[in-house]
Design a protein around this nucleic acid. Structure first.
Lengths: 246, 246
DNA sequence: CAGCTCATGTAAAAGCCTTTCACATGAGCT
DNA sequence: AGCTCATGTGAAAGGCTTTTACATGAGCTG
């Protein structure tokens, strides 16, 4: 019984009572501090106060535990994005940018989930449940892109909504992966990841013909957005979210 | 000696002759097929035909071998990007897009290097040599962005070159990470990663005021690029690299 | 060419992890 | 009270990592 930690008062008997959940939590903690590769099944068991063989009653193997975590991650991710999108309120562009920020916030606040989802090397495509969860999350981004596309200034060349969604996903994921976490593993940045992503998305949207002068917070998109100013001569001289152009 | 594979003719004696290199190659192969987490020090030794302890004469530990691979990866990456950039010939935008393609090509053709560099969880920031190599590679992108920035239509709000470089890096990395490899671990895409990235970069550049109608391959940027057409009404009606807008 | 020395390998062992299997417990039902 | 099945335990097999003492032989020295 050497593996059994001295547990406070709540002495539990032979049965743990909620081992599966305890293992998930333990794993989450371990992944957060040592990465998806660093976490060990045995460690999680130890942390939950059970023998190294106990986890096998709840997960086929180490990978299945990892998958479960990724699964949960995608679910929470979807919930977060849904909330951020808020069905496009108060206006599509604002909501859209909020989604980008939510993406980064998730990567930063839930590094364990994030790495299980995107950096654990799990074969997402081979796990139907996981794949479905992943696609539901992406679905939010896609829905947002759909709305954005419908709103895009007519007459301007633009990609299908699906492609826009993939673009946004790539940008968010790229920023999050490269600079998004406090890890020592990540690179230093002369600005916040949020600012980096926001500027990027704004430029991208402008490339699609959207007006991107800092909107004065008043709702203004519902029906027809104001005509697009020529890209070469924006109304307010040099300005934008990135300070003065050097 | 059970670990010693039946070696063809070239019977080698007690000393291997080039173990360090052999280990790097072996590891590269293993990483390519099983990911950076799947590779084991012992496997590499076995593959090189030496005892499990032999590698320790050349690498402090497993991580150092991984770092060496990442290091080499960054060097090859830098070389590839340099070549793709070709000092901005024949024109800045064309060369710029070539760099993006080279990024994807590297991720696809050298998945082992790529994952060692970006997905192995190595603390890049804590390894000066590695960090330097990484920054030299990024330096190419930054130099390209620098040139692009100098070329951007004046009068339009635009970010500092450094930020543009980070944007480009993020886009490339995002696309490469999410869709760039044939792995079962990656997602399916309704188009090629190259097309996805190219469209994305073009939209981004248009957002910066660059003309992005498919240039007819003739060099045309050296001094002053043609005036930017209004974003809302491009010269050639709806068109672009992404097919017909639905 | 004998002799030395040091880089490079080997063997063996400790310690940790994963996974399996037979067996123990006890929660819930009859 | 007695059964049964889910949930844990122990023990053991098989790998991997890393360390340590020892073996080899390549290359230099005289």
């Amino acid at each position: 019984m050497s593996w059994r930690k001295e547990r406070g008062r709540a002495e539990r008997g032979y049965h743990h009572g909620n081992l599966k959940e305890a293992l998930l939590q333990a794993a989450l903690g371990l992944i957060a501090e040592k990465g998806p590769g660093g976490f060990t099944f045995a460690d999680a068991a130890r942390m939950a106060g059970v023998s190294p063989a106990a986890p096998y009653r709840h997960f086929r193997d180490r990978d299945e535990l990892l998958s479960s975590i990724a699964q949960r991650g995608f679910e929470q991710f979807e919930a977060l994005l849904t909330q951020a999108w808020d069905d496009g309120r108060p206006d599509t562009v604002t909501a859209f940018e909020r989604v980008g920020k939510a993406y980064l916030a998730f990567a930063r606040n839930e590094p364990a989930y994030y790495s299980a989802m995107f950096e654990s090397g799990l074969p997402v495509d081979l796990n139907p449940t996981l794949l479905a969860a992943s696609e539901r999350a992406f679905g939010i981004i896609r829905a947002a892109a759909e709305r954005l596309a419908a709103l895009a200034p007519p007459g301007v060349a633009r990609p299908p909504a699906m492609m826009m969604a993939l673009h946004i996903w790539s940008m968010s994921h790229g920023v999050a992966s490269l600079f998004g976490r406090g890890d020592a593993a990540r690179r230093k940045l002369p600005m916040s990841p949020e600012d980096l992503l926001e500027a990027q998305v704004l430029i991208y949207l402008r490339g699609l013909g959207f007006p991107t002068d800092r909107r004065p917070s008043g709702p203004k998109d519902p029906a027809a957005p104001p005509p697009v100013p020529p890209a070469g001569a924006p109304p307010g001289a040099p300005s934008g979210p990135w300070g003065t152009p050097k």
